[in-house]
Design a protein around this nucleic acid. Structure first.
Length: 473
RNA sequence: GGCCCGUUCGUCUAUCGGUUAGGACACCAGGUUUUCAACCUGGUAAGAGGGGUUCGACUCCCCUACGGGCUGCCA
């Protein structure tokens, strides 16, 4: 029976426990985020454990990628990263304790025996759970052969999982097998290792993908076998691709590193991921601090959510606009590294910093930010695209020429520039739009740009003058 | 196959027996405008299907369909 009540008074400890077999999956990132939000909002701890008991598939590169992904998202963990493999002796110790207590037993069946059993069971249409002949065998008759340690699971009755997201889930014990806790090479299986580690690490809330919901019943048996307090379970639905199928490579990006390389700001990513499968009323756009304050288990939905890139972009756009200029500049530099693009020169950095105010609220991603700020990053002579070149006809060039002397002595403020330019438009008997086009071409080399005033302000008098002169020919 | 979970606008969701079923993204129309974007206003759009329970069901129960997960000496 889950002892949910005493746990409420236990300090909150959550954890993220990925297996290091690849990059940090976007679904894993959201699981980590939920754990992090929950802990941070309750003054608790958020621990990180690498489940590397599968030596075949675990790699240090994958661990590094996971840590990097978490760092990008700003999900800081408490204490040192725990390697599950390093704790294998402790796991084995617990397995033997269960053996001593009679809640586990040695099983000498070979993988061939098991396969044969399953084939037979399947042919008969009964449960395909393996029933070991060694479960009740006399120890005196144990052969001197390799063995695994199996849980002596109850074969009748049911196990109740009190889940904060899924509600009460009843699982018939007859559908659960005597799972292996310690392999024949004395290494622990995942099922044993998670329980021992979560217990030893004093994890109070296990928030993880609902692919582990069935496992929770098995794991709960180990808790009771050891007389340990069961944590509060919260099995969250997985993320699906836009077509509702399990998110996979064919949907596009699945690794968080790819999202960083695509230029989504981390704050926007956090906001979107928080809101994906979780809600509190109509809250849509919120800061990380607000998310920490708001997040709870009650708001987690029970159905898998689909990834929607349009909404991700929109959310990111809000965060880009809300972002602190210096912080955005800093993140932009990190994006360039992640995207394997050249870093900004000192001059470009300076211009970018000054342009930020007029470009950040029109960009959703860093590539867009760069695109909008192209005028500031361009170096002379500014190359014109086709459409911009067309606006620089002889008449327009003539007008640009008349502008330079006036700009020479103008005070470099928006109000002053506005006066000069509107007067110039009037003097040449054209609308302001007609004047703005060649100015855009001269200053940015393109037809879609921020306001001409903003560009002039960002570039400064000298640069503006030379660009106009360049264009005027 | 067996077991478990899920199903509200195209998408993310609100609703926790009584609402004209709300918001956001996307989309459409209009507006603003110095281009693009942004922004403002309005609009289209939903309870998978079938049975119950109830004075009354999106909400509770059952069945079906569909989707997902688990069913490993993987995690």
């Amino acid at each position: 029976m889950p002892a949910a009540l005493p746990l409420a008074t236990r300090p909150v400890v959550t954890r993220f426990a990925p297996s290091p077999t690849g990059y940090l999956h976007i679904g894993g990132a959201r699981t980590a985020l939920f754990n992090w939000l929950f802990a941070r909002g309750r003054g608790g701890k958020f621990l990180l454990r690498i489940e590397d008991t599968d030596r075949e598939r675990s790699t240090p590169e994958a661990t590094a990628a996971i840590l990097k992904g978490l760092s990008w998202l700003g999900l800081d963990w408490d204490g040192a990263v725990v390697s599950q493999f390093d704790r294998k002796d402790r796991h084995a110790e617990v397995a033997h304790q269960m053996l001593d207590r009679g809640t586990a037993y040695k099983c000498f069946s070979t993988t061939e025996d098991i396969a044969a059993f399953r084939a037979l069971a399947e042919a008969r249409g009964s449960y395909a759970v393996f029933q070991s002949p060694w479960r009740d065998a006399d120890r005196a008759r144990h052969p001197d052969l390799p063995y695994v340690i199996r849980m002596r699971a109850p074969r009748s009755g049911e196990t109740l999982i009190e889940d904060s997201v899924q509600g009460t889930v009843r699982i018939k014990n007859e559908t659960l097998d005597d799972m292996i806790c310690l392999r024949s090479d004395a290494t622990p299986t995942y099922m044993l290792a998670v329980v021992v580690d979560d217990h030893d690490m004093e994890v109070s809330h296990v928030i993880r993908g609902d692919d582990h919901l069935n496992n929770a019943a098995r794991q709960q048996m180990i808790y009771s076998a050891m007389g340990w307090q069961v944590p509060i379970w919260a099995h969250i639905p997985l993320i699906h691709g836009p077509d509702g199928k399990k998110l996979s490579k064919r949907h596009g990006a699945t690794g968080v590193d790819e999202y960083q390389a695509m230029g989504y700001p981390a704050a926007g990513m956090r906001n979107y991921l928080t809101r994906l499968g979780w809600a509190q009323g109509d809250a849509e756009i919120f800061s990380t601090a607000e998310a920490v304050a708001m997040f709870d288990l009650d708001g987690i939905g029970r159905a898998p959510a689909r990834l929607d890139f349009k909404k991700l972009e929109n959310t990111c756009g809000h965060h880009m606009a809300m972002g602190n200029d210096a912080a955005l500049l800093h993140e932009l530099a990190a994006f360039l590294v992640a995207a394997n693009r050249p870093a900004l020169t000192p001059l470009q950095q300076d211009r970018m910093a000054r342009a930020m105010y007029c470009v950040k609220d029109r960009a959703k991603t860093f590539p867009e930010l760069l695109e909008k700020a192209a005028f500031a990053l361009a170096s002379r002579p500014v190359a014109c695209d086709e459409a911009a070149a067309k606006t620089l006809d002889p008449v327009s060039r003539g007008i640009l020429k008349t502008l330079t002397p006036q700009l020479q002595n103008a005070s470099w403020t928006k109000a002053a520039l506005e006066l000069i330019l509107t007067n110039a438009a009037t003097a040449h008997d054209i609308g302001f739009g007609k004047l703005a086009s060649p100015l855009r071409a001269a200053l940015a080399g393109r037809t879609a740009t921020p306001s001409v005033y903003d560009m002039m302000l960002v570039l400064g008098r000298d640069e503006t003058m030379v660009r106009l002169t360049d264009a005027a020919g």
